[in-house]
Simulated scan of single mutants.
Amino acid sequence: MIFTIAALTACGGKAATDKSSASASKKVDFPKKAVTLIVPYAAGGGTDSTARALAKAAEKHLGQAVTVVNKTGGGGSVGMTEGANSKPDGYTVTMATVELTTLPHLGLSPITYENFKPVALVNYDPAAITVRADSQWKTMKEFLDYAKAHPGELKLGNSGTGAIWHLGAVTLEKGAGVKFNHIPFEGAGPAITALLGGHVDAVPVSAAEVKAQVDTGKLRALAINDSKPSAALPGVKTLKEETGLTVEVPGTWRGIAVPKDTPDEIVSILTDAFTKGASDQEFKDYMGKNGLGIEIKDAKSFGQHLKNNHDQFGKLIPELGLGKK
């Protein structure tokens, strides 16, 4: 399938009908071959599975194959750097994640969102404060009240110092006026295992990551740290609904981006294909089955989202003493 974008201009009056009239036509013959989608994390994870499902969904709208390639290392920095430095012709796109807006402030990435042009946001997953099902805290209010009365006592397991769920927990901590004891692990999985084993009191990881244990009755989600409930955990109220607090707690997200010098006409074609792919029922069914949220933003809205996240973490990370030395 060939996409053509044409811009036509013509002089007014009689000259407009003349063969020598001023008219121009700009065409973009794209895509003519397969598109490579760089995933900056290992196969089998949430970013990889989302990317593969999205690639399959977008192919029918692009008319060409979308091939997923995993480029791991540096907490996502290696793959995103390679994507930013690839040829700006639209044939290499990158699955950008929230770490694009955190790693630069941590001194762990040479690039920022400004090295890319946004194409589309397709996923967003909020944090869910989760405890064991047999814990003493039945509500988020009880949990925060206990934290206020016992500063620094509650142990919150996270996915690593400076990782998104650590930063999200600190944002909640500051907004609620409490103090947690943050315990880092090598990913959300080990943090959840520690919670199940009674080694930490709670985890502030994504709703999708605790869904299975909540569904089987091993864990209890106290609140969704977002402005709206999560489809992954139906019936679990938001932080504001539970406590009245309005705290902008960051969550994780995934989207498509291309090198900053990619022509706008090509970006437009990619945006159309990936947003349509993310809207396909098959993709929605896959994401729903796996507890992953869908949030679709076009290039312009995704660009603003990137800036907002970059600015937010630019203030938060230095406050944690985790910024560039």
Rank of each mutant, 00 (worst) to 15 (best):
P110F: 01
L108P: 00
F116P: 02
G90K: 05
K117M: 15
K141N: 01
F143D: 05
N115H: 11
K117Y: 06
L106V: 01
W137Y: 12
S135A: 13
D134K: 08
V122K: 02
H105I: 01
P118W: 07
I111M: 05
D125F: 09
L144W: 08
L100N: 06
P126S: 15
V122L: 05
L121P: 03
P126N: 13
Y113N: 06
E114T: 14
D134P: 01
L108S: 09
V131H: 13
T97A: 02
T102S: 07
A96Q: 07
P110T: 03
G107W: 06
V119S: 12
V98M: 15
V93Q: 07
K141Y: 03
P118V: 04
Y113K: 05
A127Q: 11
I111T: 04
Y124H: 11
F116E: 07
I111C: 07
H105W: 06
W137D: 00
W137E: 04
V93P: 03
Q136V: 08
T97R: 01
P118Y: 05
A96R: 10
Y91N: 04
P104G: 08
E142R: 02
L108G: 04
D134W: 03
A133F: 11
V131C: 10
A120M: 09
V98W: 07
L108W: 03
F143I: 12
D125Q: 10
S135E: 09
V93D: 00
H105M: 00
N115A: 10
A127T: 14
S135G: 10
A128I: 05
L121E: 11
K138Y: 03
F143G: 08
R132N: 11
T112M: 07
L121W: 04
L144C: 08
D145L: 00
E142K: 04
A127L: 09
E142S: 00
E114I: 12
T101S: 06
Y124S: 07
E114L: 14
V119D: 09
V93H: 05
Q136L: 14
K117V: 08
G90S: 15
T130K: 12
Y113S: 15
T101A: 05
T130M: 12
V93A: 08
L144T: 11
M140Y: 11
P104L: 05
T102R: 01
W137Q: 07
A128H: 06
L103K: 05
M140L: 12
L121Q: 12
N123L: 07
T102A: 10
R132S: 00
Q136Y: 06
E142H: 02
K141V: 11
A128Y: 04
L103N: 09
Y91Q: 03
V131F: 10
E142G: 00
G107N: 10
P110R: 01
E99S: 04
S109T: 06
T94H: 09
L103Y: 03
N123Q: 13
E114A: 08
T94S: 11
T97Y: 09
S135V: 10
G90V: 14
P118S: 14
T112V: 13
E114K: 13
